[in-house]
Amino acid sequence: MLTRRQILLIAASGALLPYTGLAAREKRRQAARWIVVDRRNSLACESARGFQAALRRTGERFEVSDAVPLCRAELIVLPFAGTLPQRQVSQLRSQLASGCSVIFESGASFASHDEKLRQRMMWRQAFGIHADLPPSAPACPVGDPPDYVRYHWPADVQIRHFGEFFPVDISGAEEIAIYREGTVAIRKRIGGGELLFLSSPLGPMLAAEDHQAAELTAGMIQHSMSI
């Protein structure tokens, strides 16, 4: 018996086929969950490993790709994402419009000043998200105690801050995490879908087996099912 969601997935691929062997093969080819990773970036790969572990725990199939999928997806995770080509951005917007959940983890930490500016522009143009540059003083100077990003959705947890701090404007969105008084993660409805924008990386903490990071991500994945 096909669920409504499965029927929609098949329909979105171009043809509503009867539930034959061909349709089943088609369904297997089209994973509903994707991790889109820039394999040239070691930190993106580390973060992707963390998200892979989180998705594996759900027991659902997922695909790892270097490009935003063309077929309709339920969830797309972009770990430590840098500046995406325009075609990828359009595809991502199209996925959001048709009801996909996107977890977009900023890859601006450790980037050059010019690259930070490019990424901020992409966030604004692609998602309407405005973010400041990190404060000039490092958030965690060497010798300072570690500090935590405080998430209050979908779980009340604290995750070690990682990299640099990009304060995010919450206009038209809902704040889900703060770091030292500033918003660092939001959720925003775009079309029929939802974007979770994380300006402080979460994936490396997943890769480091932080229990609370795992709990938080499980909640995000669970939520993506309800969009």
Binding site: P145, P146, D147, Y148, V157, Q158, Q212
Partner: peptide, 13 residues
């Protein structure tokens, strides 16, 4: 010991 870090970690967990 870094007591600020210890306090923060106790809060986290």
């Amino acid at each position: 010991n870094n007591w600020v870090a210890i306090h923060n970690a106790l809060q986290k967990v």
